[in-house]
Every structure is written in structure tokens, then in C-alpha cells.
Design a protein around this nucleic acid. Structure first.
Lengths: 126, 126
DNA sequence: TTATCATATGAACAACTATTCATATGTTTA
DNA sequence: TAAACATATGAATAGTTGTTCATATGATAA
């Protein structure tokens, strides 16, 4: 948050900060703004899909449940890297898992994820 | 890409890399994999929405076209920061702009963007 | 129990990215 | 023309993030 002294100085410097705005538009949109937190959450949500390793993991899991080694093999990446990313996906509830002996099988936590992937793919191939 | 020597060493170390996999699953999914580039593009696409400043810009532009100063004022951020992010959004064709005198008005380049925002919001509020 | 194996995780490092600062560009007005 | 102004942009910086390495955890088998 800027203080008035700084704003005044910027105006003196000829910078537009908050002065030469279209007040009618700004005030109207200001009222329609969602909670700050909602927009932060939204960005966090999309950020998960914004990494190629995670996208690939989500894609292969959309085809079949799989253990960590299967995914590492498919993506030709180290077990540790996959495990770290699965942790992120787990924390954000995008994947779930079941244990079978020493092996842990991961899968998408719900169909919604697949829908979003498909929606994105549709969009970029236009 | 790993070389054989490294893989052999990892096996010797007791690391799973590519050996103790479920071959049937892996081979089946391998065939269904899209082009590497398609998944990279998909991640790049979602990455744009994965930043709170850009999400906010997209949101306010979904309400009304706006100049750079209007956006900076609404988000209480510097003109330069907004301008830099608008450049990213412009390059990725998420926003378009028109010039009117000294002022540049930005707006969403198509309705699809708004749909994706709404889809995401719907998803996180579940 | 001990050895083996699949997965998880902390620390370190490298790469990337968002913001700020200073300044440039291009438009309008005097 | 010169001054004022809205926006754009290059460079520097600080913060974030993904991968690797080494090691820990927890489960099974001998």
C-alpha cells in the first residue's frame, strides 16, 4: 500500500498513478470485484496446471491409475521429481492414492480435473 | 535423457528407475500420449492464469475495457508492473487493445477467456 | 530381525519470473 | 517547436519454484 507522500511525489514526477483515471469505470468495477482471496485462490488453482511435469502426470493418470515408478518411466524423469510433484497434486486434492503393499497407486481425484484438461486442450488447438 | 551407465548404477543402488514398472500399463498409456509439444503448450497456457496480477487484470477487463492507469488504480499497483503483464497477455492473445489519443484501452480478446475464468471460479468454490 | 524395495522428503542449487526504477517512445496540447 | 502526458521497455533485484542428491520412512520377504 502506497502512502500519500509517495503518490504526491509520483504525480510531481509526471507519473499517472491513480490520478488521471477514468473514475466512473473504476468505481463501477471496484464494486463488482470479488474478494481478494478468491482471486488469489483462483491463481493458485491455475498455477498447478501451469507446469509441464504436472500436466503430464495429470494426463497419464487420466488414462489409468499408476504407481510412482510407472509415471517416472513414462515421463523419463527421476522418481524423486515425480514424488515431489505428486505431493503438490495431493495437497491440492487433484490426485488421490491407494496403497497396495509397497506400491502406491495414484489416480485423479475426480472427473472435474479431466474436464479442465480437455477444455484447455480444446482451447489451444484453435 | 539418461544413459545406460547411469541407469545401471541406479539399479545397483536399489533405485527403481524404469525397472520395477508395470509394463502393461506403461505401454498402453505410452501409445495414447499426445505430442510432447501439445502438453508443453497446454502448461504454457495455464501458466498465464497462474499469476494473481494477471488473473486480476483479466477479471477487471471482463467487466469493462480499461486503460493502463485504470487497472493500476484498481489493483493499487504501479503502472510499469501492469504494463509488463499486459504485454504478456497481449503476446498470448488474451487481450486486445485500441488507441484513443494518448490513452490505450485494453479488453479481453474473446469470450473464451471469460468462460475459463468462470469455470475456474466455479471449481474452487466447491 | 535383517535385507530389500517403493516411496517420501529435506537441503541445495539453478532457472525462472514479477516488480521496481529509470528512461524511452509516441501522442497531444500550448 | 517545446512541454506534458500515457504507455512501453531494458536492466537489476528479490522471491519463487522444479530438479537433483542424499537419506529417511514404512512395507514386505527371507
Amino acid at each position: 500500500m502506497k502512502d500519500l507522500v509517495k503518490i504526491e511525489q509520483e504525480v510531481a514526477d509526471g507519473v499517472c498513478e491513480f490520478i488521471h483515471v477514468h473514475e466512473d469505470i473504476v468505481k463501477k468495477v471496484e464494486k463488482a470485484m470479488p474478494e481478494e482471496q478468491e482471486l488469489l485462490d483462483l491463481a493458485e488453482f491455475f498455477k498447478i496446471f501451469g507446469d509441464s511435469t504436472r500436466i503430464k502426470i495429470l494426463y497419464v493418470l487420466s488414462q489409468s491409475e499408476m504407481c510412482v515408478c510407472d509415471i517416472a518411466s513414462l515421463l523419463m524423469m527421476g522418481q524423486s521429481a515425480i514424488s515431489h510433484q505428486l505431493r503438490v497434486l495431493k495437497q491440492m486434492r487433484l490426485v488421490k492414492f491407494r496403497r497396495e503393499g509397497k506400491t502406491v497407486f495414484y489416480s485423479l481425484s475426480d472427473d472435474h480435473i479431466q474436464t479442465i484438461l480437455a477444455q484447455g486442450m480444446e482451447h489451444i488447438s484453435e
